[in-house]
Design a protein around this nucleic acid. Structure first.
Lengths: 354, 354
DNA sequence: ATGAAAGCGCTAACAG
DNA sequence: CTGTTAGCGCTTTCAT
């Protein structure tokens, strides 16, 4: 039995396999031109005539052709990919990520995310980014040593966000933490507070600066002797613990300056549960002005770090190295801005004499 | 002016360019064998003798050779990449992501994340994943229409988490939301509650099931007439609004069953701020048992969705399609588990007669 | 304006 | 056990 159709293969349509994606070749064949020409049209590079362009584009549309990024990357020696290291749990990181996407897009870069997880430390997460052929890395609150960062910075464009590092080939975007704390302390002092406690962020990003800022700000107001710092670690837990310790100690301050918003949440919650009126009895101030703080029902006075702007500057910094060939490190410092909301108010009268 | 050196290019070493990465060729040349052999050794495929293996490995180490994933993907027709769509802001998604990483690693897959953002809708985020040549997609709480999901499912392995969809080529991993709500209602009723309000999740994932579960559970206890549902949307805002409405309405229930933990947080906060004692006056129950709920200072009674297990099952489902060739859709339903904590307790005495 | 040819770095047949 | 030969899908000279 011969059908006379032996030459016409049934094509790869059959079976259960996924439909094969069309390639440049397929499009070229259909239009009857060369691959190169199609390539030019697709990337709309100069060259092809308007008419060819038209025909190629139509064919591509009909075939639902989509260029294969893998092949493109292999051939051009660029991926136009920016890797972002983040902690999935961190709300501020979420804010940054959301702003990184549009910033990168505007400059013609794509973004890949790599999150920290219990089974996935920074090294692993960064390795994944490197495997993706990222040309630049934006590290949100990295904990890596400066040595490790240096090694990275020597291989590709690296920007550390929210962390201060000096003298290494890595850009930095951060807010002036000392200044932010100054603003918070000034605000409190102007409301009559003198007994102010700082629950710090331990060895977390920016914690050292915030601690220092607290000391100097208190000093400026002649309150050096009133400086009280409780060790914390930027978590709700540590905030709650600190607050409970203050309650038990009986020496309740009139204001608590938390190391960040998460910590402030813990402080707030512990106070409210204990029946302490915020802000009438105690004022609470956070740091980060995360989405959480802004929710009307939380309404936390906080020091704002402009996530959107930080994201944009971080992306821009990476792209400057990549596209403009900058090689000197930049340390970009933004001004924070205290946002006064409902958790801070006049100090309650205290027994102490002036 | 001729320099006589026209033939000898300086090579790409010079200038400010990054050092070129060594290739298979470089390693092969150094050892004096063929590329193919090196390739085998690197992937430690069977074939090469122990001795060759040894020499190749050493050379690779010396050169700090690392295979180029791009080229690998292009050549093998597999990426072993699983794409995950998530909302950066969602704490439950963060839990899932953290569990997806190890689950995927165990099965030999890598994970790429694509987050939703204001400027980046689901379509865009999924497109990015497709561009990365993902072989499978794990969509966390997707909002796409079943039509769109079908189209995706026809192209690659797709798993929707936390959403029910029937009759389309997409796997599903979710918890039995009705059952979860049943447990919560049973718990409350056993504590003497009859006036129970449900703040729902609108059109969010699982919201319809939870709403239905609330109705049937109340019905079973002969409380059909007591069913009160307030429209919400899974946000803290909506929880706060609902709670305030209840307070103003003067018809305070003895318990509020929130659509999820975020909503419960809003409810809780509004009550606490208004001086309502939780759980003495009103019990509050959440849904998700997110990290937030578990924090000791929040201590929210909540319905647990086992993120770890869901993540593992989702990954496994995708991999079954990929590695084992399964093509029939699976709907994987887990049992939720009420976790009783501090925000639920005996109903306060009410005026109503039994 | 268009096409031919030569790879990017790797893997998969197939020989030897 | 090892090497040769073809490409994957795309971009880039360089001709025409």
């Amino acid at each position: 039995v011969h059908t006379g159709e032996s030459a016409a293969l049934p094509g790869p349509s059959a079976v259960g396999g996924r439909a094969k994606r069309p390639t440049l070749n397929d499009v070229a064949a259909r239009v009857g031109v060369s691959r190169a020409l199609v390539s030019l049209v697709i990337r709309n590079a100069p060259g092809p005539s308007a008419e060819t362009r038209e025909r190629v584009l139509r064919a591509a549309a009909e075939l639902e052709y989509r260029p294969d990024p893998t092949a493109q990357v292999l051939r051009r020696h660029r991926s136009r990919l920016l890797g972002v290291l983040l902690s999935a749990r961190d709300a501020f990181h979420a804010d940054l990520v959301e702003a990184i996407y549009p910033a990168a897009e505007k400059l013609g870069y794509e973004v890949v995310l790599s999150a920290l997880a219990p089974t996935r430390d920074e090294r692993k997460a960064v390795d994944a980014l490197l495997s993706s052929r990222c040309e630049g890395l934006i590290l949100l609150g990295p904990k890596a040593s400066s040595k490790q960062l240096t090694a990275l910075g020597e291989r590709l464009a690296v920007v550390a966000v929210g962390r201060r590092v000096k003298g290494i080939p890595v850009d930095t975007v951060r807010t002036a933490d000392e200044e932010g704390v100054h603003q918070a302390v000034d605000h409190l002092v102007s409301l009559g507070h003198r007994a102010i406690v700082h629950v710090d962020g331990g060895r977390g990003p920016g914690a050292a600066e915030r601690r220092r800022g607290f000391r100097t700000a208190m000093g400026r107001h002649g309150l050096s002797d009133a400086v009280r710092i409780i060790a914390g670690d930027y978590t709700e837990e540590s905030g709650g613990q600190a607050a409970r310790a203050l309650l038990q100690g009986g020496n309740l301050p009139t204001a608590v300056l938390a190391g960040n918003d998460r910590c402030a949440m813990g402080v707030l919650d512990a106070f409210i549960r204990a029946g302490v009126d915020v802000p009438r009895e105690v004022s609470v101030i956070g740091y980060d002005d995360s989405q959480l703080a802004r929710l009307t029902h939380i309404d936390l006075t906080s020091v704002r770090q402009d996530a959107e702007r930080m994201a944009e500057l971080a992306v821009r910094a990476a792209v400057e190295r990549l596209d403009d060939g900058r090689t000197t490190a930049r340390d970009i410092v933004l001004s924070p801005q205290l946002v006064v909301r409902g958790t801070s108010g006049p100090a309650r009268p205290t027994a102490e004499l002036t």
